[in-house]
Design a protein around this nucleic acid. Structure first.
Lengths: 122, 122
DNA sequence: CACGATACCTAGAACTACTATGCATTGCAG
DNA sequence: CTGCAATGCATAGTAGTTCTAGGTATCGTG
């Protein structure tokens, strides 16, 4: 299953903030995590993630710091800020609202009768 | 609560297909329905909806036909096609997958420990 | 010492969506 | 009987964003 561009875009920010809410991490690791975590359905590229991280930092939702492990390359670790946590909560609320609306439509709730249902082709 | 542009974009197609899956309708009515249905949270404009309907028609997901009611203006009624129903099912599956992934992150499932959790600021 | 994996970054083309505007009809308030 | 709000549909063009493609560099391993 290939996931729509729009859906990928809409879920990117809450996913990253959600992951960082559990602990610091860095770009490459986040990438692997998301790709595995979704069973390969969300095919993120680094070209998607890095600009997003930069944007989140510019907005003050995350902070970053370089770290050089004993062995291996330098990594830029990201940490969520209080503002970021607030944003995450906001995003969760929005997702909940939209999912509720969709569920309403998909379950054909009684409030969803069409306003007019004329015979087709008259 | 103002809903993100991305989220609006991602939910627009499944919402419209979902509404039309319950019966024919026309632009203006769909607009009112969505705005009310979401408690005013999804603020759709006609400039968003009409191009979307045209696109869905171009893709063969919906069909349209003009109708003139006894009283009132002419309306262009839209009806979902078999292809559209297939697309709707596909979209539902995608939404489910993404929502599941998000839920996993938000609930801090045990599989979501960060790969490395170094002391910050070292 | 070469190659695959790790790790990060960005310019610019390619695409897309939203604003603003336009048109036409109907029904109701004044 | 007139003028305005609501109904109803449509699109051009800009303003914006996103993805592709490429670039840099280090490390571990065969």
């Amino acid at each position: 299953m290939h996931i729509t561009k729009d859906l990928v875009a809409a879920s990117a920010t809450p996913l990253v903030l959600g992951i960082l809410a559990e602990g610091e991490s860095y770009g490459y690791a986040i990438l692997k995590q998301v790709n595995e975590l979704s069973g390969g359905q969300l095919e993120w590229t680094d070209g998607l993630l890095y600009p997003l991280l930069h944007r989140l930092e510019r907005l003050g939702h995350v902070e970053s710091a370089w770290q050089t492990p004993e062995s291996g390359r330098k990594r830029k670790y990201y940490r969520i800020t209080d503002l970021g946590r607030a944003e995450l909560a906001e995003q969760r609320a929005q997702w909940t609202a939209v999912v509720e609306t969709l569920r309403g439509v998909w379950n054909s709730g009684p409030m969803l009768r069409p306003i007019a249902a004329p015979a087709w082709g008259v």
